[in-house]
Amino acid sequence: MQDRNVYTIQQLSAFSGLTVRTLRHYDDLGLLPARERNSSGHRLYSRSDLLRLQQIMFYRELDVPLSEIAEIVDDPDFSLTEALERHRKRIGAEISRLQKLIATIDTTLHTVNQETMSDRTNEELLYDGFSKEQIEEINAEVDLTYDPAIVAESRKRAKVMTKKEIEAFKIESSDILNGLIAAFRRGAAADSEETLKWIGRHVDTINRFYTPTPEIISGLGDLYVQDPRFTEYYDKHVDGLAAYVRKGMKAYAESMRT
């Protein structure tokens, strides 16, 4: 009879929601090695492996790179109990922030419906729940990365977009992302005709807000791997996608110069 505390990779996939391919990738990296294999050579996992995978997924939620996660969970001083307490504290803080954002939405809906926004206090309530640190980081990023004239032009064009144009923009952006993911998974080179086609469409969406020069396009590519928020946007779909898009942006920028 099979040990109830031993699980196949298919069971682990069903429990966690991660694909078998992802679990095999974690095994290959040494991040989640199978403790043994059955007579057919299939990976087998223990209860402790399930808990280890939970920690990996927690740290991925916090945008910690896989290489750093391995160092954390393999540290001889690593304590599962202490790690869970830290995760609980972080998640509790995030829940509080999200609850405040929900309250902000409710306040805004009430204000819009009642048309009572008449003083500065009500206006400030529109932004309650957005962390001060995040706002400062966004402002600093814009100030350091973009020319003020570009920022002004981008905001001007965005302000006059209709609801229909915004929805079309979202659909186009989603199509581009899916196209890049497909190219990456097929192993297409970052400077291949297929990938550059999607990068070109991405540049076209940027062009709706301001005219991107080769230098700007190249700089945006760097930003995709330097800014954790951009990296997470791409890598949450496929690990390494942000770096792939960066290479594509660099190649596209170079093609504009020739």
Rank of each mutant, 00 (worst) to 15 (best):
D49M: 06
T104W: 09
T258M: 10
D3A: 13
A253C: 10
R21H: 04
Q11A: 02
E193P: 08
E115P: 00
R60A: 06
A251F: 04
E153A: 14
L220M: 11
L32H: 10
Y26V: 10
L44T: 05
A242L: 12
D235R: 10
T121E: 14
H237C: 03
K247H: 13
A168R: 14
D239E: 10
H110T: 15
M256E: 05
D143N: 15
Q2C: 02
Y26L: 09
A103E: 12
D147S: 10
V203M: 01
S67C: 05
I72Y: 09
R47N: 04
L180E: 02
E133M: 07
E82W: 05
L31G: 01
G129F: 13
V238P: 02
L53S: 00
Y234K: 04
Q54Y: 07
K89A: 14
T107P: 01
V112P: 08
R246W: 03
R52T: 06
A253L: 05
T111Q: 07
D147Q: 05
D143K: 15
V112F: 14
Q99I: 08
D75F: 10
K197D: 00
I9Q: 06
K247I: 04
R88V: 03
K159Q: 09
K170Y: 02
P76M: 00
R86Y: 00
A182N: 11
S218G: 10
T213E: 12
L80A: 11
D77I: 11
F230M: 13
D239P: 00
L125M: 15
A243L: 11
K170L: 03
V203Y: 01
I135W: 08
M256L: 15
P76E: 06
F15W: 02
A152R: 12
Q134K: 12
I95S: 09
S79C: 13
E141S: 07
R201W: 11
M1E: 00
S192F: 06
D63Y: 11
I206W: 01
R35W: 12
A34D: 06
I206D: 03
D28I: 04
D63N: 15
R47V: 14
G219V: 10
S154M: 14
I166W: 06
T145E: 08
T162L: 08
L23Y: 02
H87Y: 00
L101A: 04
Q10M: 12
E172N: 07
E215T: 14
H237T: 04
Q54H: 12
R88A: 10
I199Q: 02
T111W: 07
D74R: 08
A243V: 06
Q114C: 06
R35F: 12
K250H: 08
I135K: 12
D28T: 06
K163F: 11
S255M: 14
L196G: 01
V64W: 01
S46H: 14
A93N: 14
R186Q: 12
H42N: 10
Y234G: 04
D143R: 15
S13P: 02
Y45H: 00
S173D: 05
M57L: 14
S173Q: 07
R201M: 11
